[in-house]
Write a protein that binds this DNA or RNA. Structure first.
Length: 271
DNA sequence: TGATATGTTATCTT
DNA sequence: CAAGATAACATATC
């Protein structure tokens, strides 16, 4: 599922191909998928593609922005006008199509949880002000991590996944980061030791995810802006590795449920 | 057929 | 009131 590394991969690609193009037309194929006025978007030039946590932010000329959240099954694919007519055609799960100066931006979303919102600068500013730092932000310090962990009795994994406390970390990378730091995901947050190691591991694992272009795990449909799958799934430390041998101590990776989410860890070396 | 998967939020409970 | 737990959203797949 798209977490920060997947979204950042898409952002970097879109920044290269979309910046400077003008949105000529917006086709809303499903009402749930586009909130706001498509007519206000048409005719605007794309200034830049940015990102906050798992949300893509398209900065448009004038007082308008597009916020895009892929949730679980969203895809954002760019096709140059020279692509085959077959590729350019709307698929079964295509929800929004942007016709641009030199191509098309297609938003697919099988399960309809994702959305695109057109919002003005003032709305954006107020909204961003409420958000916590991203895991890759400078504001995410050891001290900050210490603060959010000390303030909760919940399992450490659930606190790290809480988008109101820390932005960008999802179920795949949190499992791998806790393995990296040798911390049991069930540990109550305020009892976690070696916080600076956990801090280092979170950043390291997320950056590794970006390096490999995100992950397309089993049963997942993530693709980047060119429609290609990620590669981090070949680098998973513990995610989806239940029954396999622990890379660190030779123990066996176990799967449990925590907060209703699949949780993978090595019981013998994650304490 | 029913359980399962995941990101986020609404809603209920403690 | 706040923190925590859980349901809900929609759909394909095992």
């Amino acid at each position: 599922m798209p977490e920060l590394p997947e979204v950042e991969t898409i952002r970097r690609q879109l920044q290269r191909v979309l910046a400077g193009q003008t949105i000529k037309k917006v086709d809303r194929l499903h009402p749930k998928s586009f909130l706001g006025s498509p007519s206000k978007v048409a005719g605007r030039k794309i200034v830049a593609i940015k990102r906050k946590a798992k949300t893509i932010w398209v900065d448009l000329e004038g007082d308008l922005n597009l916020l895009i959240h892929l949730k679980m099954t969203g895809q954002l694919v760019y096709l140059p006008a020279s692509a085959s007519p077959q590729a350019l055609q709307a698929g079964k799960h295509t929800r929004v199509v942007f016709t641009l100066t030199k191509g098309r931006l297609i938003f697919n979303d099988m399960r309809l949880f994702g959305w695109i919102k057109a919002v003005d600068n003032d709305w954006l500013k107020k909204h961003f002000a409420k958000l916590p730092p991203d895991v890759v932000d400078k504001a995410f310090t050891v001290k900050y991590l210490d603060k959010i962990l000390l303030s909760s009795n919940r399992a450490v994994k659930l606190v790290l996944l809480d988008q109101a406390k820390l932005g960008g970390v999802g179920n795949i990378y949190v499992n791998d980061a806790l393995f990296c730091a040798a911390i049991n995901p069930q540990t109550p947050a305020k009892k976690v030791k070696r916080i600076s190691q956990l801090h280092r591991c979170l950043i390291k694992v997320i950056n590794r995810g970006i390096k490999y272009g995100g992950s397309t795990a089993k049963d997942e449909n993530y693709v980047n802006a060119y429609g290609k799958r990620g590669n981090y799934q070949t680098k998973f430390l513990v995610y989806e590795q239940a029954g396999k041998t622990c890379k660190r101590c030779g123990g066996t990776i176990k799967k449990i449920k925590l907060g209703g989410r699949g949780t993978y860890f090595c019981p013998s070396c994650q304490k």
